[in-house]
Design a protein around this nucleic acid. Structure first.
Lengths: 236, 236
DNA sequence: GCGACATTTCGGCCAATGCCGAAACATGGG
DNA sequence: CCCATGTTTCGGCATTGGCCGAAATGTCGC
C-alpha cells in the first residue's frame, strides 16, 4: 500500500550511506574539501580497489562528484542536501543508544574549531554566531536566521561576500553542532564566513583533519571584529 | 585515520534505514500516527515475522518506540530528529539520478494535503504558510521563521496552542516539501496548527494513508481565517 | 479454559554484497 | 621509452542479513 516507490528510493540512498567504509568517506568529505580516491581509501580503512567501487556507486547515485585532475581523481560531496543528510544522521548517531553517551569529537582541536562541510563548527562556530547575534547583525530563530540591515553593512565592511547569486540556497541556516549541541551558522552566510576567515588567514585548515587552527593574526582579528577574547580558546 | 567511531555509528543508523522494508515502515510512520506491527507489515510488504524482527532492531536503535496496548503493539517514530533524517533523505531521493525526474506523490490527494510527521504538507501546507506570511503573522527565512507579536495574537485568537513548554524543540521551522519543492511550516507551530485544524474538524485524516481530507466546515473556515479560497484545491 | 487474533522466536535457505589479490589502464617525470 | 604512482577492472571467496514456514507466547472475548 501507499507510496512504496519513494520509500524504496530513500532506502537505496540510505543503504548507500549505510556501509561503514562509505560512511567514513562521506564523513571525511564533510570537511568540505575535495579528497582524492587514495585519501578516501585511507579514511575508510579499505584498499584502493574497494574504494574505487564504492566511489563509483556513490557517484552514480549523485552523492559525490568526481573531478579529474592529473593522475588524481578528486571527489567532493555533490550538494548541500547530501551534507544535510549526513548532518541529520550525525545528530541521531550522537544521541543514539545511551550506552556510551559521553560522545562527540574526542580530539580537543576538533572541539575548538572545525569545518562542517562548508562552514565553521565547534566552539569557534558558536562564538561567531553568538557574537553576531549580540551585535544585532543577525536574528536567529529555530534553525535559521535573518540578516539585519546593520548586519548587511557589517558583512560588507568585513569583506564577507554572500555572492548575489539567484541561488535557492538559504542565506542563513543554522546547523546543530553535534559536539556542543548548540546551533552555529550555516547556509550561504556560514560558507561566506568560512571563506573570508580563511582568506584573511585568521584560520587555517589542518592537513588530514577537519580541525581548524586559529592563527596569530586570527586571534587579534577575531577579538577586534567579533569581540572574541584572546583567551577564549583555553576555556571549555 | 580521523574519527572512525562516529562514522561507524552513522553507518549503523543509515544501514538500518537502508533496507526497503524498514524504509517503507519509517515512511509510513512519517504520517505521524502510531501504527501497529501488523499495519506496518502491510506497508512494508513483508510478513509479520519479518516485520517483528525489523521493528525490534529499530526499537533497539531508538528509531522507533513501541507502545503496548492490548494485544496490539503500536510503534511511532522516536523523535523529531528521526523525522528530519527521513525528510532529508526524501529530498535527496526525490532529486536523485535524473532518470525519471517527474516524481513526487502520484496520488493527487497526497499532493493536495497530507501529514508530514506532525505537521501539514502538500499544497495546503504551502497555502497556510503563505497566508500567515502575507498577513504578517510570521516572517520566514531560510529554514525557519519568527512569529511576530501580531502572529502570537492571531494564534491565541484561533486557539492554536504552542504549549508553553520549556522544550528545546524549535518553535517554527520550515520543512522542504518534496512534492512541491517549497517550504511549509514545521516545528512546534506546524504541529500545533495540524492539531488545531484536526480538532476543529476542518481537516480529517484518511485511513491507511497520509492524505488529509478537507471537510465542508474546513473549506469555509480556511477561507475565513486564512483567506484560502474555496476553489483553491482545484488548482494545481 | 478455549478458540481467534496479534506478535514474537526459531531454524534454515538464499541472494546480495563487501573484501582482497592480481592485473590492466592512465598519467606524469626522468 | 620506461618506471613510479594513482586508479580501475576482474574473479573468486566469505559473510551478512533478509525472508519465510512452523511453532510458541500473549491477549482478548466468550
Amino acid at each position: 500500500m501507499s507510496n512504496i516507490a519513494s520509500g524504496n528510493t530513500i532506502a537505496a540512498v540510505a543503504a548507500l550511506i549505510g556501509d561503514p567504509a562509505r560512511a567514513n568517506m562521506l564523513s571525511a568529505l564533510m570537511g568540505g574539501q575535495a579528497l582524492t580516491a587514495g585519501e578516501l581509501a585511507r579514511h575508510a580503512g579499505v584498499t584502493a580497489q574497494t574504494t574505487s567501487g564504492h566511489l563509483a556507486r556513490m557517484a552514480d547515485a549523485e552523492l559525490v562528484v568526481p573531478q579529474k585532475q592529473g593522475r588524481h581523481r578528486y571527489y567532493r560531496l555533490a550538494s548541500p542536501e547530501v551534507a544535510r543528510v549526513i548532518e541529520a544522521l550525525s545528530v541521531l548517531a550522537a544521541e543514539g543508544p545511551k550506552r556510551h553517551h559521553p560522545v562527540g569529537p574526542r580530539d580537543e582541536a576538533l572541539r575548538r574549531a572545525r569545518t562542517c562541510y562548508d562552514h565553521i563548527a565547534g566552539r569557534l562556530g558558536l562564538a561567531l554566531a553568538d557574537s553576531m547575534q549580540e551585535c544585532g547583525h543577525i536574528v536567529l530563530a529555530d534553525g535559521a536566521g535573518i540578516i539585519t540591515p546593520a548586519g548587511m553593512r557589517f558583512l560588507a565592511e568585513t569583506g564577507i561576500d554572500l555572492g548575489s547569486s539567484p541561488s535557492k540556497r538559504p542565506l542563513c541556516r543554522t546547523c546543530l553542532d553535534w559536539s556542543e549541541r548548540r546551533p552555529h551558522l550555516a547556509g550561504r552566510l556560514g560558507a561566506a564566513l568560512l571563506a573570508r576567515l580563511l582568506d584573511l588567514k585568521w584560520i587555517a585548515r589542518t592537513p588530514d583533519s577537519r580541525a581548524l587552527r586559529i592563527t596569530k593574526a586570527g586571534e587579534s582579528g577575531l577579538a577586534q571584529t567579533f569581540g572574541i577574547p584572546h583567551d577564549w580558546h583555553s576555556r571549555p
